[in-house]
């Protein structure tokens, strides 16, 4: 198999994976978290290369540490999740750069880390991504309704007697695995495009979460394939071509939605969003019995 067909297969698998897990990222509003993760795994990758270990393994170990740190910061009063993501992002990136500068002979470079190189993906990269995709599909098939409930209404989910952390852990695990496997092919920054854009486009147009979960991977895979084809036709880098195709899908979805609502169709999609706050329970009592 030549490198081009390998690239096409890699783009399809990784695009579908990013689209599927991206749906969870977008619905649970974890985009900045995923972004921080991509940058913060950089020192893990560099360290793994220094020690002669597998780079995805190093990135994965680093991301577990990072998720731990972010959880701690996110729980501290007056800090929260945005700060946690921001700190970890800059810290991780700076650490990676420092490690790399101290070991200039390493095969891990900032540019390929940032934008990836899909034309050099190997069979094992594809195998890894395919494995993660299968796991993600299984998780969504078996835990779909719990994931949906906890995403839609976290306080209602807790009130119904569930614990939230298993769902949180499950999503974080999937996001981490996706980021780590997608990075060699599309890079840290562009992986975010592939995670966010197809899912956000699907969310704009789909009426149900089920439709999003089907449409997003299809859009992701399509963006991957068209990006690779475009990069050959126009002689531009593959990573940016994929990212721009995905962004174009989002713009298109935005336009379609705009036209739809302008056409006055009152059947606007009932979009699943997180409610502003869980005050419903507090308001249930009508307070005039006294």
């Amino acid at each position: 198999m030549d490198y081009f067909s390998t690239a096409l297969i890699a783009a399809t698998v990784i695009g579908a994976l990013c689209g599927l897990v991206g749906s969870l990222v977008v619905l649970r509003r974890r985009t900045f978290f995923a972004q921080a993760l991509t940058h913060a795994t950089f020192p893990g990758a560099v360290a793994a290369a220094m020690l002669g270990l597998s780079i995805p393994l190093g990135a994965f170990v680093a991301s577990i540490a990072i998720v731990g740190i972010m959880t701690v910061i996110g729980r501290v009063r007056r800090q929260g999740s945005q700060v946690a993501s921001g700190i970890v992002l800059t810290a991780g990136f700076a650490l990676g750069v420092l490690l790399q500068a101290l070991n200039p002979s390493l095969p891990v470079h900032v540019d390929s880390f940032l934008v990836g190189s899909i034309l050099t993906t190997t069979g094992s990269d594809i195998g890894l991504a395919g494995g993660v995709l299968v796991v993600a599909v299984l998780v969504i098939v078996f835990f779909g309704k719990e994931l949906l409930f906890s995403t839609f209404d976290a306080s209602g989910y807790r009130a119904a007697g569930y614990r939230e952390w298993p769902m949180e852990l499950l999503t974080l695990g999937l996001i981490t695995a996706t980021v780590v496997t997608a990075m060699p092919a599309v890079g840290a920054i562009l992986a975010i495009a592939l995670i966010a854009a197809p899912a956000a486009a699907a969310r704009l147009l789909a009426r149900t979460t089920g439709q999003i979960l089907v449409a997003a991977p299809v859009l992701g895979a399509t963006a991957g394939i068209s990006g690779v084809l475009l990069s050959r036709a126009l002689d531009v880098a593959a990573g940016p071509a994929i990212a721009l195709t995905a962004a174009a899908f989002f713009l298109l979805a935005l336009a379609v939605r705009q036209i739809r609502s302008r056409a006055g169709s009152s059947r606007t999609a009932a979009l699943p969003t997180r409610p502003a706050s869980g005050r419903a329970a507090a308001r249930a009592s009508l307070g005039w019995e006294s």
Binding site: V25, V26, R29, T31, F32, Q35, V115, I189, L190, I192, A193, I195, A196, A197, A199, A200, R203, L204, V236, A237, G239, P240, A241, A243, L244, A246, A247, F250, L254, T273
Partner: peptide, 20 residues
């Protein structure tokens, strides 16, 4: 629209243009 996703899409698209 989900703001964080929209931000991510805008900046990655811009960045991609820059890389190209």
């Amino acid at each position: 629209v989900p703001v964080d996703a929209a931000i991510a899409i805008v900046f990655t698209a811009m960045f991609s243009i820059g890389v190209i």
